[in-house]
Amino acid sequence: MSEHVVQSPLPGVFYTRPVPDQPPFVEVGSVVTAGTTVGLVEVMKQFAEIKAGESGTVTAIHAENESIIGPGDGVVTIEKD
């Protein structure tokens, strides 16, 4: 099987959860589809969803919650189905 690294489309602050008191969008071992939200990136109080882009299983999460990321930075790795 091959891997797909989900990359941030924008620079900003990466969030692994929709709100602080809820569980993360995905965890290692989560099964996702191409349309699954894997995180949010905030730029100037605007939030953009980052989608998986491929179906498969999450094998790694590269960005920590509330970390600064740049465009093209890998945030999640998915082992494709």
Rank of each mutant, 00 (worst) to 15 (best):
S55G: 14
E3V: 09
I69C: 00
V41L: 05
H62L: 15
E27V: 15
T16C: 10
A52F: 08
L10S: 09
A63Q: 01
H4G: 09
V28F: 00
P20I: 00
T36L: 14
T36Y: 14
H62N: 06
E3K: 12
M1D: 12
V6K: 02
G53Q: 08
G70P: 13
V32N: 10
V76T: 03
S30G: 08
P24C: 10
G39V: 12
I78D: 00
V5R: 00
I68G: 11
G72I: 08
E66T: 15
A63S: 04
T59S: 08
T57P: 04
A52T: 01
T57Q: 11
P9G: 13
V76K: 00
M44A: 06
L10A: 08
I50N: 01
I69D: 00
P23V: 07
Q22P: 01
S2H: 09
S67Q: 10
A34D: 04
G29H: 02
Q22S: 14
T16Q: 10
G72L: 02
H62R: 07
E27W: 05
P24G: 09
T57V: 06
M44D: 13
E64L: 15
L10N: 11
V75E: 00
H62I: 11
R17V: 13
P24W: 04
F47R: 13
F47H: 12
Y15D: 06
I50M: 02
Q7G: 07
E64G: 15
V6P: 03
Q7E: 13
G72M: 03
V75I: 15
K51C: 05
Q22W: 09
S67C: 03
T77A: 12
G12A: 06
V58N: 00
T77P: 07
E3G: 03
N65H: 12
G35P: 02
T59I: 15
G35M: 09
T16Y: 06
T36C: 12
I68M: 12
R17W: 07
F47E: 10
P24E: 04
Q22N: 09
D81F: 03
V5H: 00
S2R: 10
T33P: 08
E42W: 11
E3T: 14
P20S: 05
V28N: 02
G70A: 12
K51L: 13
T16I: 08
P18A: 10
P71T: 11
T57A: 03
E27D: 13
G74H: 04
V26L: 15
G39W: 02
P23D: 09
Q22K: 13
G35Y: 04
R17C: 12
A60C: 08
V28Y: 00
I61Q: 10
V76W: 00
T57M: 04
K45P: 10
K51A: 07
V19M: 13
S2M: 10
Y15V: 08
Q22D: 08
V76P: 01
L40P: 01
S2G: 09
I68Y: 14
V76E: 01
P11Y: 00
K80E: 12
Q7A: 11
Q22I: 05
F14V: 12
M44C: 05
I68F: 14
V28P: 02
G72T: 11
A63R: 02
I68R: 14
V6N: 06
S55R: 11
G72Y: 03
A63C: 06
G56M: 04
A60N: 11
I69S: 04
A52Q: 01
T57I: 02
E49I: 12
E49Q: 09
I50V: 15
S67W: 04
T16G: 11
V26R: 04
A60T: 14
K45H: 08
